[in-house]
Amino acid sequence: MKATIHITLKNGVLDPQGKAIENALGSLGFGGVDEVRQGKLIEVRLDETDADKARATLTDMCEKLLANTVIENYDIHLSEA
C-alpha cells in the first residue's frame, strides 16, 4: 500500500518561502496569483494491506515525527499502487 502525505503550514502561520515564490511569480509576469503556500510531500510504502490499519499507523507517524502539529497540518492519501 502506498501513502502520499501532504504536509502544509496551518492557516495563519507565516510562510516566508511561499511569499517569496509569490513575488517571483509576479516578477515573471504571472498575474492573478492571490497566494502561494509551500509544503512538503512524503511518500511511504507500507506492507499493510488493510486501509484502516494503514491510516492509523500513518497518523501516528505524522503525529510523532512527520509533521510538527504546532504549525503544520497533514493529509494522508492511500492508494493500492
Partner: peptide, 16 residues
C-alpha cells in the same frame, strides 16, 4: 521544542 521539553517551534527566519 521538537522533543516537547519546551513549547512552540523555531521557524525559518522571516527574511529568508
Amino acid at each position: 521544542t521538537e522533543c516537547g521539553l519546551l513549547p512552540g517551534v523555531l521557524m525559518q527566519n522571516k527574511g529568508l
